[in-house]
Amino acid sequence: MLEFIIISTLNGVTYGLLLFMVSAGLTLIFGMMGVLNFAHASFYMLGAYIAYSITRTIDFWIGLLVAPLLVGLLGMLVERYLLRRVHRYGHAHELLLTFGLAFIFEELIKLFYGDFPVNYSMPAYLRFPAFSLFGADYPFYRLFIGLVAIGMFVLLYILLSRTRVGLVVRAAERLPSMAEALGHNVPLVFMGVFGVGAALAGLGGAVAGAFFPTNPNMALELGVIVFVVVVVGGLGSIEGSLVASLMIGVFSSFAVGLNWSLARLLDLVGLGDWARELGGLMTLTLSSISGTVPFLLMLIVLLVRPAGLFGERN
């Protein structure tokens, strides 16, 4: 049991940190521009595939470095030439545009790389156990994913709180027109933030794609979870999305190993057999609905406290 708890916690935290790498950009963009970017998880996927291509032809580390840059550049182009065009039609229209882009990115990936997972993996010398626990090896690369995410968070935090650029970004987030009146180039800031957000997602993809499967569904699968994270954490709140990422990450890794059900819960009050006879929802195990719970959580947050755990605004 102790083994299960420790391993699950470690897995959950590293997965949560990965979620945070992707959700940080999404929530930052929403907070600043009011755009819920449906294509954000596509940047994650593109990061993985680009890194894969570079790893295959050149080198893993160069892939890790170049993929986020390319994805960030793509993000900036998307903001500058597509999003800005439809800005005047309102947020719903911006959302629909990013939704269409997500669609296109997925199909383009299928066009170039096929429908099946590609064999993107870390170099052999990174494939070693970090430590052994209860006779099982714990892969170093999982920790590496977490470390990259932490490093990125520290960097982002310093950038936002300690530099002039960060000051302008925060000003543009709160009062865009005021920041503009003060002579700051707000459209440029928007483009920059969009690019950085995309690059972060790309980095996440480049790092994680070498460990988790890299396939055309990865954007959609992660994308919906990332939506859960930013909503639960509070749309626009970086701290919120960090906490929510870890929460969802840890929950997911625990849930898959637990066969709790409502019926077992009712055993405690002697109603277990009755519940098992009822079947249906009563006998569903936690592990089988581990994919459902995050959405339930998201729904509850949206209905009870739409500003999320850490959001200030509605």
Partner: peptide, 18 residues
Amino acid sequence: GVYFALVTLALAEMLHSL
């Protein structure tokens, strides 16, 4: 607005995963 869209998304995803 966006929050409505997200509620509907969550509803459908719940059914889809359940």
